[in-house]
């Protein structure tokens, strides 16, 4: 059977593009599959961007299913599956279960797969309304009311955060898998990476808002290394105190709308960031109501 069920997926069970591979070496290498759900493909491209390591990767694993890179398809099961994207359709739900059943180790890659992605903004919206506005024939469309991470549907062995993922972390997962060890994926804050690199703290030294203290490391503190606050694209760190950070963002002069927005970007659906954005919104509504009441009382 083939589980390559994208609408345009043309399965070519006999197409074996690794012409120079002999069957023995191909079969002795673990099979890697790279899957896509609702996403922009950026994380899959991060794998293709591993230019210096790509040949070593191709030697170490048998790239069996990776439509972003090759039309060749080798049937499962797959020793390692990398899954990009979030679950947004009934078909996605069915497909991810099939993929899980055919996969040894399953690692999700990127903010969509680990937190629902930017498209998790639909979790706060009326999807029926979108549907009727955007599509001429909304009745043809089967979609869910929410965008959810892969781990909400099946067991996930490792999660790589980020929008997009960090290629060093991708290679670490591959190297760990190939050597039978646990990958090193820190869950502490971005601040650790800033300090290890010798970066000067952006909010303390410049007053710019920064999500680094509540955001998980992994990017190498990319934005703060260029003097900008962290945008939180790696989602919440394991001990995120968003209540305290929200107070700091307010003090640094960030309006409520903007604070809601920074929590609801790439990882809007991550529980800690979703709750933080809801809390700011609720406070803003309450503040507006009390202002209105004061004005009403004064007039």
């Amino acid at each position: 059977m083939s589980i390559a069920t994208e609408p345009h997926g043309v399965t070519e069970p006999h197409a074996h593009s690794h012409g120079h591979d002999d069957a023995a070496s191909a079969s002795s290498r673990p099979k890697l599959a790279v899957w896509k759900f609702a996403s922009c493909d950026g994380c899959q491209l991060s794998l293709l961007n591993c230019e210096d390591e790509l040949l070593s990767i191709a030697e170490a694993v048998h790239i069996a299913y990776f439509p972003e890179a090759t039309r060749a398809v080798v049937e499962g099961p797959y020793e390692l599956s990398l899954v990009e994207g979030s679950i947004t359709t009934p078909d996605d739900v069915r497909r991810i279960h099939e993929i899980r059943a055919q996969s040894g180790v399953l690692a999700t890659i990127g903010a969509c797969a680990t937190a629902g992605g930017i498209q998790a903004l639909r979790n706060w919206a009326d999807v029926d309304q979108y549907r009727s506005v955007v599509y001429a024939h909304p009745e043809y469309l089967k979609t869910l009311d929410t965008s959810t991470p892969i781990a909400s549907h099946v067991d996930v062995d490792y999660e790589l955060r980020g929008c997009p993922v960090d290629k060093k972390q991708l290679i670490e997962v591959l190297a760990a898998f190939l050597n039978g060890r646990k990958p090193r994926i820190p869950t502490y804050s971005v601040c650790v990476e800033c300090k290890l690199k010798g970066n000067v703290c952006v909010p303390v030294a410049t007053g710019q808002p920064c999500l680094g203290p509540v955001t998980q490391a992994g990017c190498g503190a990319l934005c703060p290394s260029y003097g900008r606050g962290c945008y939180g694209c790696f989602g919440p760190q394991d001990s995120a105190n968003t209540e305290s950070l929200t107070r700091q963002l307010v003090e640094l002069g960030m309006p409520s709308d903007d604070i809601v927005r920074v929590y609801r970007t790439f990882n809007a659906g991550a529980p800690a960031f979703a709750a933080a954005s809801d809390a700011v919104e609720a406070d803003a509504v309450e503040a507006a109501a009390s202002r209105a009441a004061e004005q009403g009382g004064a007039s």
Binding site: E53, S56, I57, A60, I171, E172, L174, A175, A176, L178, N179, R181, R184, Y188, S189, C191, V192, K195, L196, C201, G212, P213, V214, Q237, S239, A240, N241, S244, L245
Partner: peptide, 27 residues
């Protein structure tokens, strides 16, 4: 407290470390 670790990493006396093993793809 943000549990961000900044205090410990700017402290001139904090000396705690961890050990990390890394390997390449081939091992």
């Amino acid at each position: 407290c943000l549990a961000c670790t900044n205090c410990t990493l700017v402290c001139p006396t904090c000396f705690c470390t961890t050990v990390q093993d890394v390997s390449d793809l081939t091992g």
